[in-house]
């Protein structure tokens, strides 16, 4: 356990970062009303300045604005994909753990089958089936990410199922459904929620990877992956800013969310919660 001061520092810095990012992506586009696609070839590849804090890209578009839009899309994809993956994973894991027997074996072999294919390959396969767009990317990320949640939830349910308090519920007349909804699900939801939060940055990286490979979002759409992809040629010419800023914006939310998740995990620990050792 970290000492309380670093603990608080971590909570505040992570919380502040996530807050700023959320405010930026939620408020900037509707408030500023600037066109992030506006091309101005006379001002292409300008280094960072007061007018363009992040510089401009090879078509003279303002990079700060494009980064905010890119972050917005990447976060959206990350959030929705993480949510879908968590719901699917929790449902599969809970069903496998609670029902056991054949259901458990079948579902878990399915999970094994999915995880035997490399992540990115499966993702590429899914996006290749559709036209480029946001939804195929979300689907591809979700399809590859519910597996770990399913495993976590299943093992949690399995260990809970043998606790005497489940025996007591059964003896008190509770049916399967009642036991699952009243006793098992509330116990695994915090874990599943934590997994979902940790998955958001992971899903963002996946979206970026797909876009970087040219398979994700349409290339004119500003996403962090597309921005880095577009900046590749200018990086070779020594122009660092079109690569650096989108890259930083990919790393920053990852660290901040991981920090928040760490604080959350500590809170889940019952020994900390009870404070007392009587």
């Amino acid at each position: 356990m970290a000492d309380p001061r670093t603990h608080r520092l971590r909570l505040w810095s992570s919380g502040l970062t996530v807050g700023v990012i959320l405010l930026a992506v939620l408020l900037v586009p509707p408030l500023v009303q600037l066109d992030e696609q506006a091309v101005d070839l006379s001002r292409k590849l300008l280094p960072p300045s007061w007018e363009h804090p992040f510089g401009t890209d090879d078509l003279g578009r303002d990079l700060l604005l494009r980064c905010v839009y890119g972050l917005r899309i990447s976060l959206l994809v990350g959030l929705v994909a993480a949510l879908v993956a968590t719901v699917v994973g929790t449902a599969v894991g809970a069903a496998a753990g609670a029902l056991g027997g054949w259901t458990d074996r079948t579902l878990m072999r399915l999970v094994d089958a999915f995880s035997s294919v490399p992540h990115l390959l499966l993702g590429i396969f899914v996006v290749a089936l559709f036209r480029p767009g946001v939804w195929p990317v979300i689907a591809s990320v979700a399809v590859t990410h519910w597996l770990s949640t399913a495993r976590i939830v299943r093992s949690e349910v399995l260990s809970l199922r043998t606790r005497p308090f489940i025996d007591a519920a059964v003896s008190g007349g509770a049916g399967r459904w009642r036991v699952a909804v009243r006793h098992l699900l509330p116990a695994v939801l915090p874990q599943a929620g934590l997994a979902a939060v940790l998955m958001v940055p992971h899903a963002m990286w996946h979206e970026s990877a797909l876009s970087f490979l040219g398979l994700g979002l349409p290339s004119h759409q500003a996403s962090l992956g597309n921005l880095v992809q577009n900046a590749r040629s200018s990086l070779l010419a020594g122009d660092w800013w079109p690569t650096l800023f989108p890259g930083l914006l990919l790393i920053l939310p990852t660290l901040a969310i991981a920090g928040l998740a760490g604080v959350w995990r500590d809170r889940l620990n019952p020994r900390r919660r009870s404070e007392l050792m009587l």
């Binding site: 005497p164 308090f165 059964v170 003896s171 006793h183």
Partner: peptide, 26 residues
């Protein structure tokens, strides 16, 4: 367990050794 008729199951009350693990913490 669940397969037993409810009336039969609830005709028997149980108290376990360790109250900590026998009570849903929530």
């Amino acid at each position: 367990r669940h397969r037993a008729p409810r009336a039969q199951r609830t005709a028997v009350g149980v108290v376990f050794q360790q109250p900590r693990t026998a009570a849903d913490p929530r």
